[in-house]
C-alpha cells in the first residue's frame, strides 16, 4: 500500500466517521458487543470455576481451566465468535441506511466515485474485524491471568482464525446489504442464512460420517466447507475430556483444517468481489 492509497482510505474513513459518530445504533451495538465479549467469557470462566470444579473435584471432566494460558486464546476466540453477529448487524445497518436515505447517491453527486462508496464500507468491515480481534486478544489476556496461569503464546493462532471469522461475518453482511438494500430484508436474510447454513452443515457432517463408515472414504467434514462454517470450523474449544471423547471417536471424519482455511479465504474473496462489482456496475 503506497502513501497515496493510505491517504485515500484515511480521507474516506474520516468522512465515514462523520456519518457514524452520532449514530445511536453504532454506540448501542458497540457497547453490547464489548459487554457481550466480556460477559460471555466471564460466564464460561465462572461456570468452570464455581460449578464444574465443585461438582467434579477429581477433575475427570476437565482438570485445568479453559482460560489457563495456552488455552485462553482458543477459548476466548471460540466463545466470542458467537457475538460476531453484532458487528455484522451494524454493518448491515450502515450500508442499508445509505440506500434508505439515498445518501449513497448523494455521496456520488457530491464528488465520490462508485469505488469510494464500496471501498469505505469494505474498510469498515476490515476495521470492525480488527477491533473485534483486539478485544478478543485483550480479553484472552485478562482471563488468562485471572485463571492464575503464566503467560504463553502457544495456540495464539486461534486469535488469527478469529480475525478471519470476524471478517467473514462482516463481509457476508456487507454482501447481503448491498444485494438486498432494504434493512429489514438484509437483517432477516443474514440471520436466516446463518441458521440455514448450520442446519445444512449438520446434515453434511452426518453424510460425511456415513461415507466414512459405509464406504471408507474420508474427505473431512463437508459441513466445514460451507461459506460461514469454513471460518467457524477453524475455531475449536480447547481439548478436554469431553471434546476428546467426541473428536477421537472413529466415526468422526478427519479435520482437514487447511482446506477450511483455503476455502474461508476463497469465500472472503467472493464476498469482496461480488459486493464491489455490484456497486461498480449497476444502477444506484
Amino acid at each position: 500500500m503506497n502513501l497515496q492509497t493510505d491517504f485515500y482510505v484515511i480521507q474516506l474513513l474520516k468522512i465515514e466517521w462523520l456519518k457514524i459518530k452520532n449514530y445511536s445504533a453504532f454506540i448501542v451495538l458497540g457497547l453490547f458487543f464489548l459487554l457481550g465479549i466480556l460477559g460471555s467469557n466471564y460466564a464460561v470462566f465462572y461456570l468452570k470455576k464455581n460449578i464444574i470444579d465443585k461438582a467434579d473435584p477429581t477433575g475427570m471432566i476437565a482438570s485445568s481451566s479453559p482460560y489457563d494460558f495456552a488455552h485462553t486464546w482458543q477459548t476466548t476466540s471460540y466463545v466470542s465468535g458467537y457475538l460476531l453477529l453484532l458487528p455484522g448487524l451494524l454493518l448491515i445497518l450502515l450500508v442499508t441506511n445509505e440506500f434508505a436515505f439515498r445518501t449513497h447517491r448523494q455521496n456520488i453527486l457530491d464528488g465520490w466515485n462508485r469505488k469510494n462508496v464500496i471501498d469505505v464500507k469494505i474498510a469498515m468491515a476490515l476495521i470492525a474485524a480488527v477491533i473485534s480481534t483486539i478485544l478478543v486478544f485483550i480479553t484472552a489476556i485478562i482471563f488468562g491471568f485471572a485463571a492464575g496461569s503464566s503467560f504463553s503464546v502457544t495456540h495464539i493462532d486461534a486469535v488469527g482464525y478469529f480475525f478471519l471469522k470476524a471478517l467473514s461475518y462482516n463481509m457476508i453482511a456487507l454482501l447481503f446489504a448491498v444485494l438486498v438494500r432494504k434493512t429489514g430484508f438484509a437483517i432477516g436474510l443474514y440471520f436466516i442464512y446463518m441458521g440455514f447454513e448450520n442446519i445444512v452443515s449438520g446434515i453434511l457432517q452426518a453424510l460425511s460420517m456415513k461415507f466414512k463408515a459405509e464406504y471408507g472414504f474420508d474427505i473431512g467434514n463437508m459441513g466445514d466447507y460451507l461459506p460461514m462454517n469454513a471460518s467457524d470450523g477453524l475455531l475449536h474449544f480447547p481439548e478436554n475430556t469431553i471434546t476428546n471423547l467426541a473428536n477421537n471417536s472413529k466415526a468422526m471424519p478427519h479435520d482437514y483444517m487447511y482446506v477450511s482455511l483455503v476455502l474461508a479465504l476463497v469465500y472472503l474473496f467472493v464476498f469482496y468481489a461480488w459486493s464491489r462489482n455490484r456497486i461498480l456496475k449497476t444502477d444506484l
Binding site: 456519518k19 449514530y23 445518501t103 448523494q106 456520488i108 457530491d110
Partner: peptide
C-alpha cells in the same frame, strides 16, 4: 469523472440526507 462532479452542486430527485443528523 468525480472531480467534475465536485465542481457541480447537484440536487437530484429527493433531498438525500442522514435522517439522524
Amino acid at each position: 469523472n468525480e472531480s467534475h462532479r465536485r465542481q457541480i452542486g447537484t440536487f437530484l430527485e429527493t433531498p438525500n440526507f442522514y435522517h439522524y443528523l
